[in-house]
Every structure is written in structure tokens, then in C-alpha cells.
Amino acid sequence: MLKNKSLVSIDDVSNEDLEEIFTLSDRMLGVVESNKNPHLMDSKIMATLFYEPSTRTRLSFESAMHRLGGSVISVSDASSSSVAKGETLADTIRMAEGYSDIIVMRHPLEGAARLAAQFSSKPIINAGDGSGQHPTQTILDLFTMWKEFGKIDGLKIALIGDLKYGRTVHSLILALSRFNVELTVISPPSLSIPEQFFSRIPENVKVRKSEKMEGFVEDADVLYVTRIQKERFADKNEYLSLIGSYSVDLKIVESLKKNAIIMHPLPRIDEIKPEVDFTKYARYFKQASYGIPVRMALISMILGVN
């Protein structure tokens, strides 16, 4: 039950909650397609506090609230206003809870949303805290798999790219570990999953590690590709020599199972070649579009209206 609760970490959501979220997101997809205002959030106000720049997450939260018939107040660059005046996050949140019914926030420090939830009587949704959690992205990733395959149990998922710094990939792996899945983690050695994190994956989850895609993606149902950032490499030549080996092109696509899908949290740079966009495997834009119905479902469940 998510009613009146904050959503800070994927651990705040049980598998039962997930099933409920998926079913409701599917219904919300119908609401979006019908283009009708369901008036579920009339008179409800969402505050968005973004201490870090964001395009898609913020737009999709605001769009989701508008789609539900609610309204949004926002600070486009919270860090330049409150922080500059020396206000603590605890104080900012206690101010914002008086102005709204639900608060969506992104902050550069890990644990910021948990702290906010501690000081707020209104529910907080974490839209990313430093390199910590980004639970709504994780839920929409899971929803995409559920929507495509009708279930998550039994899926073989290959996670490719930056598995060290990638915020989305960590909470996704933890969430997937709660299902009966087989994981393959593929990354250059310098960007492999941190040991500290790897030890959190339960022993019953089958995990294969690899440095290359060939021989490891052919049996996958899902290729979850993440961005390898140039900034992570001190030596730019190393990046250039490496990026090709982690780039999904038509040759890789031809080796995939016929019903496999390719996902990416976006923005992508060179990890997926543009020509792949036109193949039947590409799902990343669809995945991004699911951000709206999933966030509509979450807002409705948290505010107790569905």
C-alpha cells in the first residue's frame, strides 16, 4: 500500500505494490490515449523541487499531474534560491509541505529524499538523489518489461555499459533481483559493478559477468543499455577505443532472439546506433513514454485516488 507514503527507494515498494502499480499504469495508459481529463487530482497540487537539472523526469512528472487534472507549482532551480540563502533542506521542505499535497524532488546529495520525508507530513517522491536512488525510473523500466512480456519472472536480462556510476542500473538490478530472473552484466572492467553493490544481489539470482556482448546477448529477452560517459575516462583515447565494443549496432541486433527488446533510460550517445531505432527491437522511446502513465499511477496511489 503506497497511500500517503513517501517513495524514496525501490525498497519502499513491495512486489505486491509493483503488480498494483503495473495494472494501474496500464489503465492510465488508456487515460493518456483517450486524451480526456479523468479529474482524479482536481484541487490537488504537486510541488516540484529540482536542485539539479533534469529534462525528462521533471517534464514527465509535471505532465502526469496535469493529465490527472491536478496542478503543479515548481522551482526550476531550487539550488540557486534556497541554498544560496543558506536554508537547510529540512526547512525548505517544511515550507513546501504547506504549499502542496505531494512533493517531487531531485537533489545532488544521496539520502536527501529520505531526509525530506522525515520532515514532511506530505508524501515525497524521490526523482533522483545524487548517485543514489531513482525509484520511479526503476518502476517504469520494470513496467516496460511487464508490458512487453506480461511478466518479469523468467526473463533473461543483459545490462550493458556503465554499471559503476549508472544510478538507474543499480536500483534496477536490486529490483530485478526480487524476481526469478537471469542477469548478465556486461561492461568494461573500469566500469563494472562495484563489489560493495554486487554483494547486495541475493545468492539465488543467477548473474553472469562479461566484458563483451558477443556470446552473451544472444539468449537475452531484454538488452538494457546505459550511457557510457566520456567524463568517466581520464584518457579520451581509451573512451574512443572502448565505446565501439559496447555499442549496439545492426550486427548485434541480428544476433538477438526474435522477440527480444532493447531498452535505454536515455539520453543515449553512441551506445545504440541510430539505425537500430527502426528495427522491431527498439523500445527505448516507448519506455520513455511510459514515464507518464507510471507516474500518473504512482501519484494517484500515493494520494489515495484511483
Binding site: 527507494s9 537547510t88 533542506l89 544521496e110 539520502g111 529520505r114 531526509l115 522525515q118 538523489d129 536512488q133
Partner: peptide
């Protein structure tokens, strides 16, 4: 911020703690 560092005990032997805030 007006909070004290806070940890939940994940395992006592071997000792492992989880930060209440950042979950590290």
C-alpha cells in the same frame, strides 16, 4: 542539516550497517 547520522544494523556477524539516509 538538523539530523544525526543514523544507521540500521543489517547484520551483526559480520557487522554490516546501512545508512538510513543514503542506504550505503
Amino acid at each position: 542539516e538538523p539530523v544525526k547520522p543514523r544507521f540500521l544494523v543489517r547484520s551483526k556477524n559480520p557487522l554490516s550497517l546501512k545508512c538510513y539516509y543514503c542506504e550505503r
